[in-house]
Nucleic acid binder design. Structure first.
Ligand SMILES: [Mn+2]
Ligand SMILES: [Mn+2]
Ligand SMILES: [Zn+2]
Ligand SMILES: [Zn+2]
Lengths: 150, 150
DNA sequence: AGCATTATGCAAATGATTTGCAAAATGTCA
DNA sequence: TGACATTTTGCAAATCATTTGCATAATGCT
């Protein structure tokens, strides 16, 4: 969720012309407090615009390619998308609820990750680090007594 | 890769009868040095046995459900499977190569992860933590000069 | 306006996984 | 052992997310 970003200028500095669709998709991704699936984004956008699902996929691919957004794997079958980390938005872990399928952003303070050693010694190129916790979210926990223990 | 595990008894203590197919699939997963996709496992098994792909999926689901193996998300579209962490096999991060699609196990020493705070404060149930590094592996790096910088 | 480039839509294809249902294998017990 | 229940497997088809091919529309540039 960002109130500081000028999405228009982000697109321009990323070599992407700020077309209405790109701008709207970037806004949807950026103004949300959790990473959204392509389907989520398509549905949200469809409420106000006429747009094809494939266009959404293509724009998401573009934004990922240019490093504007991150493709985040959930514990399920679909990818989710969130703003790529930058000075305003530090990289942070996510939580995936296996019951409702929602992915939520976690506070970066809550998890400490040290990867210096691996970065020094790894013989390939490391471009991205993903930390994901899986389990049952607060809401599903309330609705599903059987998961309260264990 | 495990030389200490008795897969047969692992199955039994997990309330699963040790059928030949279950045993073979668990051996393939357990004796491999990286997490395999269902397709990998199916192909490996098919070299010696006649088995249906769906049976592989179903056995993998069972083993995941019983906590014998972990379903690990790659940076791509398919899940991979590896032995669930236990006393002999500590939990560890993985590396996904976006070019060849391979997933490899990383040394648990190379990455330090502290999640006590999130575990204390998170209002749901945390069952699993996944750390994945994405990029280009050593081999693809060698074959693909254009990735050597950047 | 004329022409090249880019963005979008639509239908169909693909890849991974899941489901439904029936047959085969295995277990139980009289 | 034979009858019956339960479990495991196979096969075909369905589902879901994503991608591709190709045609049209929109935009940018001279
Ligand atoms: Mn996030
Ligand atoms: Mn591993
Ligand atoms: Zn939930
Ligand atoms: Zn590779």
């Amino acid at each position: 969720m960002c109130h500081h970003c000028n999405y228009n200028s982000i697109l321009k500095t990323s070599e992407l012309s700020p077309t209405p669709n790109r701008l709207k998709i970037l806004e949807i991704v950026g103004n949300n407090n959790r990473p959204l699936s392509a389907q989520d984004i398509f549905e949200t956008l469809s409420r106000s615009e006429e747009i094809n699902r494939v266009t959404v996929y293509r724009i998401l691919d573009l934004l990922v390619e240019k490093g504007v957004i991150d493709r985040i794997s959930s514990g399920g079958r679909s990818f989710h998308y969130g703003l790529a980390p930058n000075k305003n938005h530090p990289s942070h872990p996510h939580f995936y609820c296996k019951l409702c399928g929602n992915l939520e952003c976690l506070n970066p303070e809550g998890v400490h990750l040290e990867i210096e050693q691996i970065i020094r010694t790894f013989p390939g190129v490391i471009e991205k680090v993903e930390v994901r916790l899986d389990g049952v979210c607060k809401i599903c926990l309330r609705n599903n007594k059987k998961f309260s223990n264990h």
